[in-house]
Computed example of a mutant assay.
Amino acid sequence: MNDQVSFGYEDVPIEEKTARVGAVFSAVAKKYDVMNDAMSGGMHRLWKDQFVRRVKPREGEQILDMAGGTGDIAFRMAERGATVTVSDINQDMLDVGIERAMERGFDDLVWSRQNAEELTFPDRFFDAYTIAFGIRNVTRIDKALAEAHRVLKHGGRFYCLEFSTTEWPGFKEVYDAYSHKLVPWLGEKIAGDAESYRYLIESIRRFPPMREFEAMIREAGFARTKVEPILGGLVAIHSGWKI
């Protein structure tokens, strides 16, 4: 049994990764959204808009937004009338999201500190489960996917927005150079923390390719799985149904 998992380009004991990832997100929480704009040139907003359009949140639905810390996805879904529970393993990220929600007048969101691998919600409770740019930081992805399947109602839908590996010729090399050199530099200049952003880029490189991750979603019990690449697979929207 392999008791080591990836933390960026390192392999670390399972019990160590959760703590180290937690430290990264506590360090970057207050500058997280500013850095997202800087790193993506604001494109992350378009990706998130597209993601929520695919989810199609509706009035009266119960949706779990996992790793939803700062509220970006939850705010978009709440605007469409869904009842959203925002969950994150990191309280610092949730605190930032709660503050932003108060500023924007989102009073009906539910905030809950949760480990994606061991959710405390009952079986068959949610109509949809969303996770954006969070699944690659989970220690045991298979457990998180199994929990997503468990808490969804029959007919419920799973949607995941995550970085992947672009398949556009030439673009991969340009992006690799940009991400490995410029992103840590931006992290130092904007957030005063190059190392956390170096880890976040390395975690993208260690995440399974699109088709491999789709297979993991199927193995968790989801049907009608689909991958929608963005920018040739630099980012991808993954989906599946509990049927």
Rank of each mutant, 00 (worst) to 15 (best):
H180M: 13
Y32W: 04
R211C: 00
R45K: 14
T225Q: 07
S179Y: 03
F207M: 06
F106W: 09
N36G: 09
I73T: 13
G8W: 10
D72N: 05
F106P: 07
E228L: 15
I243G: 01
C160D: 05
G192D: 08
A38Q: 10
N2C: 02
V5F: 00
A82H: 13
E212T: 15
A67S: 10
R140F: 00
P229D: 04
M210F: 05
G69S: 06
S239I: 09
G68V: 10
A148P: 02
E147A: 02
E212A: 14
K242S: 08
S40P: 03
T83Y: 12
L145T: 11
A78I: 00
R218F: 00
T130C: 15
V96K: 04
A144L: 04
E16V: 13
R205A: 14
G240D: 10
A132C: 05
Y9G: 02
E99T: 15
V96I: 15
A38V: 15
D107P: 01
R76L: 15
Y129G: 00
E117G: 11
K31S: 11
I141E: 12
I230Y: 08
V174D: 00
Q114E: 15
D127Q: 04
V151A: 04
H180T: 13
Y199M: 04
Y197A: 03
G134D: 06
V183T: 08
Y199G: 10
I201S: 01
Y159E: 02
R113H: 02
V138T: 12
V227E: 07
A82I: 00
M102L: 11
F222H: 11
R54H: 09
E16N: 12
G221I: 14
V183S: 02
T165V: 09
V21L: 01
G97I: 11
D92E: 15
R45N: 09
A220R: 07
Q4H: 13
V12D: 03
E118Y: 11
V138L: 10
D123H: 12
A27P: 05
E173A: 14
E188S: 10
